[in-house]
């Protein structure tokens, strides 16, 4: 049996979930025995070079590029996992959802204390178009599993991956996702 293939990406996230992947510590050594990483910031591979078994998505969709990348992942991954609060529910970026895009951009570029008086809001064909609000991944494509947490702990990620690699349904122990 060949190695399983994993891909990861950070959409509208903060890379905290990726840091948490590294937090599985010594088990990383077990993991690299079992899997290889394809498209991922960890490998710096920018496009899929083969069919992937498991895709980990960090972050929700805040712009058109996120949507495109997410669809790419859905096309190339057998199993897709929403990793962390932002992918699952939009998370912190979704705080802008009750504001208009105009208010958001003006706050970010014109009224921000470090750049007071600026009147230019960047626009370029290379810049992806922003969405009217931040969407969780499962509103765009089918997501097979959701790992909650901000970020999900290394243990949560490891237990889910280990189960999937074993061919089992991932079941997260309650104490791992109990936060209070």
């Amino acid at each position: 049996m060949g190695k399983k293939v994993i891909s990861t990406v950070s959409l509208a996230g903060c890379f905290g979930c990726h840091m948490s992947v590294l937090d599985i510590d010594l088990k990383l050594l077990d993991l690299v025995e079992l899997v290889e990483f394809n498209r991922s910031p960890l490998t710096d591979i920018k496009t899929f070079t083969k069919k992937v078994d498991i895709g980990l998505i960090e972050g929700g969709c805040c712009n058109a590029e996120n949507v495109e990348v997410l669809r790419e992942f859905r096309k190339n991954c057998d199993i897709l996992i929403s990793l962390g609060e932002c992918a699952v529910m939009g998370g912190l970026p979704a705080l802008r959802n009750h504001l208009s895009l105009e208010e958001c951009l003006e706050e970010a570029y014109c009224n921000v204390p470090t750049n007071k008086g600026n009147k230019i809001i960047p626009k370029h064909e290379d810049l992806p178009e922003l969405l009217d609000r931040v969407y969780p991944c499962h509103e765009v494509v089918k997501i097979d599993y959701f790992l909650p947490g901000c970020p999900p702990s290394g243990d949560v990620i490891w237990s889910a991956l280990a189960a999937l690699l074993n061919g089992d349904e991932p079941k997260i122990a309650k104490h791992l996702i109990k936060y209070d």
């Binding site: 058109a64 949507v67 895009l101 105009e102 969407y135 494509v141 089918k142």
Partner: peptide, 20 residues
């Protein structure tokens, strides 16, 4: 069985285009 949902990208980016 659907993997891709009918997410309306055109509609979701309309506000941005109109703003600019």
């Amino acid at each position: 069985d659907e993997l891709f949902f009918d997410f309306d990208e055109e509609k979701a980016t309309k506000e941005y285009r109109e703003f600019h």
